[in-house]
Simulated assay, not measured.
Amino acid sequence: MKKRGFGVGCMWYGVGNTGLPNPAGAFVDLLDDGTVNLLSGAADIGQGSNTIMAQIVAEELGVDFDDVLITSADTGITPEGGATSASRQTYISGNAVLRAAREAKKVLVGEAAELFGAEASEIVVKNHRVYVKGKEDNAKKIQDVIASCRSKGKITIGHGWFNPNTTALESETGEGSPYGAYAFATQVVEIEVDTETGQVEVINIFAAHDVGTAINPMQVEGQIEGGSTMGLGYGLYEEIKKEDGKIKTPSFATYTIPTAMDVPTVYPIIVEDPVENGPFGAKGVGEPALIPTAAAIANAVYNALGIRIMELPVTPEKVLSQLKIKQ
């Protein structure tokens, strides 16, 4: 007999390291033709940080994404970017590149203010054009303003760095402020359990994640889908078995991970609640996408069968053992 169940898993996660210095830096050079050289230490290991950094700079400087050439994670020329871990790069390196872009932009805006006879606070830089707020018809090309800067020996370059404001945990009370931002999420899974074999199949995952601001919604959805799949493996399949200090599951023949055939339909739900100190309000979504899934699966098993599996993964053997005890 097959029974269906639903389970909920919730989490909150501190973005970055725990109450430790956690800095990143960046350099931005706005070139004569309106393109940008960006140097960032953030290592893109497939999660898409290069895209995010370029988007942040393009948005701030009023140029196209394709106009930003990023050099990243080159220890010979890029500044410190910190580890690509702890769901921190969008939040921390993103802030660093935003600050660098703003410093370069100050030179451009200052020159435009002189050319237009306006206050710097009135200058708008957008879509490769520079103009006084409310007077878009009288805009100048960004290249023309840069040329004016060059004629006066002004270099439109900026550097920036960011280190979140944290306080280490006090050893006796545990009090402190260990993170500069927190991610929140709730996932609901729908499962089907075969009571004869103990096999659990996840049918759907509904994953709602507060990401602050989704700088690249498609990438955020991809992170949620990928993290949920990792959580599926954690909840149902993956188990390191040891004997006498030796790992007995050293290969994918014995250490089971989800395949394409195992992945359910994942419904990513992006919740945007901008965090005040994030780049354009953004914060991390890497590990938060993984964390709630296994708990939601275990809760769904309880909902379907009335049994509690207290140790992951939720294998058929464990399900059948608990069903036998229940009977």
Rank of each mutant, 00 (worst) to 15 (best):
K2E: 13
K2C: 14
R4T: 10
V8Y: 13
V8K: 15
G14W: 07
V15F: 10
G16A: 12
A26V: 05
A26H: 03
T35S: 14
T35K: 07
V36T: 11
L39K: 07
S40H: 09
N50F: 13
N50M: 12
M53Y: 01
I56K: 03
E60Q: 14
E60K: 11
L61T: 03
G62Q: 10
T75Q: 02
T75V: 08
T78L: 06
E80H: 13
G81P: 10
T84A: 14
A86W: 01
Q89A: 13
Q89F: 13
I92Q: 11
N95V: 08
A104E: 10
L108C: 02
E111R: 11
E114D: 15
L115D: 10
F116K: 01
S121P: 00
V124G: 05
N127K: 11
N127Y: 03
R129K: 12
K133T: 10
G134V: 01
N138C: 10
A139S: 07
K140M: 15
K141T: 09
D144F: 05
A147D: 12
A147R: 08
A147H: 03
R150Q: 15
H159V: 14
G160I: 08
S171G: 08
P178S: 13
Y179G: 05
A181L: 15
A183N: 09
F184V: 06
F184E: 11
F184R: 15
T186H: 09
G198M: 03
N204K: 15
H209P: 05
V211E: 10
T213C: 14
E221M: 04
G222E: 00
G226I: 03
Y234M: 04
Y234K: 09
L236N: 00
E238M: 01
K241E: 11
G245D: 04
I247Q: 06
T249K: 08
T249C: 00
T254S: 09
T254I: 06
Y255I: 06
Y255L: 08
T259H: 12
D262G: 07
P264N: 13
V266A: 11
P268T: 07
P268R: 04
I269A: 10
V271D: 11
E272V: 11
E272T: 07
E276D: 15
P279H: 08
G281N: 07
G281A: 04
G286R: 09
E287W: 04
I291A: 04
P292W: 01
T293L: 02
A300F: 04
V301T: 01
A304K: 05
R308K: 07
M310I: 11
E311A: 01
T315A: 02
T315C: 01
E317Q: 15
K324S: 02
Q327C: 04
Q327F: 07
Q327W: 08
